[in-house]
Design a protein around this nucleic acid. Structure first.
Lengths: 207, 207
DNA sequence: CTAGTTTGTGTACGACGTAAGCTTACCTTG
DNA sequence: CAAGGTAAGCTTACGTCGTACACAAACTAG
């Protein structure tokens, strides 16, 4: 999926010093730091060190730290909904979306507050969700109603993940909630809320 | 509700310099700064200035900034669910909770990311929601099911508010979304998701 | 070789959270 | 009233953060 290590992203423009950095490389390194050490460790200097580069060099590719976080959010959201949507009824597709989104969020617990704070660009989001929206269209559900259902579920998944990964203060290790009983509790709660919402929409949107 | 301005919170202990500060006064000032100038402006120095006090004085009442934010969250959540719960069926009480919670969140848009990041202490939260939970009990709904429903709705409300107040970068004024068409869009979306969830739970929890 | 262009670097500034020790203003005891 | 105790607020200082600005390096085109 990546070019062989050692190759360099060739700029489109003509001359100039060859770039050792790129937006993607920066974002990927940011995700690694985030997963390994948490949000507080994700500073420009630390990220520079990780990439063997001065902190200021990052600003050639991103206008500021907030843009980095936004890019990171987009990256993770794309990862979450990357799988193609199978040809199933929209209720099932909606469930699959919720599960995949949640799986990604829980795989990157320290990113969840970022998803909450830096909303995914709406146009980008809708493009990524085109496959899902098509399942609604295939059943004759109006686009507006489909958007409402998808957004509502998305918002529920994010909110639920926030509740699950939220720790009192800055408890770092951010234990992956090794305790299986706790995990089961959240799983069941998640399922119940999701089921309620999906069946609620199903009743409303099917004639 | 407040003692006449000028009175000072008398400490319980014996001697000592009279306190001009108190946790409540600090939290109240923090809310004012947050509403007027946003989260970024809510620094310890700025808060000190607002209270005519050195920044370090705040640390006599709070261990660190994060504790301030947590206290602020608790304050707002309590404000949100302060109203007594009327003797209505749980489906209606659940709707009322959702509306009141959302109203508070939208009244303090810059606090929404904080609510997302600093979870309300669960025991405190359940105490504040006792009236609501009692409506479920009155209909014979098991406590566990009631908790699931309430938490699910709470999570949905918060997630929805995040989506509504979330701005691209650090767009400050944080316009109260003066545009009524935009507000109506979010209102309708909110209602649709809430209705789906409540009716979904209703079908499951009523024999 | 020279000029042009892009990328990475070094230095520096202002703001932040907050640790440590000092001062102030009250109460109690004599 | 004087002396001591004690809690609240203040001053100073440190380390870290994001990032502005001017410069050096590494390439391509002529």
């Amino acid at each position: 999926m990546n070019p062989p290590a050692g190759s360099r992203p060739r700029a489109a423009g003509r001359g100039g010093r060859p770039a050792v950095l790129s937006r993607e490389r920066i974002v990927a390194a940011a995700v690694e730091i985030l997963d390994a050490e948490g949000l507080e460790a994700l500073t420009m200097r630390r990220l520079g060190t990780r990439l063997d580069v001065a902190a200021m060099s990052l600003y050639r590719h991103l206008p500021n730290r907030d843009a980095l976080l936004t890019a990171l959010v987009g990256h993770l959201f794309a990862e979450a909904v990357a799988e193609p949507v199978p040809a199933v009824p929209w209720t099932e597709a909606l469930r699959l979306f919720a599960l995949a989104y949640r799986r990604t969020l829980l795989a990157h617990p320290d990113a969840v507050p970022l998803l909450a704070t830096h909303p995914v660009d709406v146009d980008t989001g809708l493009t990524l969700l085109a496959g899902l929206l098509e399942r609604f269209a295939a059943s004759g559900v109006a686009r507006q109603d489909a958007l409402t259902a998808v957004q509502s579920v998305g918002v529920y998944v994010l909110g639920h993940a926030l509740a699950q990964v939220g720790r009192p203060p800055g408890t770092r290790p951010a234990a992956p909630v090794a305790d299986p009983a706790v995990a089961a509790f959240y799983d069941e709660w998640f399922e119940a809320g999701l089921l309620a919402m999906v069946t609620g929409f199903e009743r409303r949107l099917t004639a």
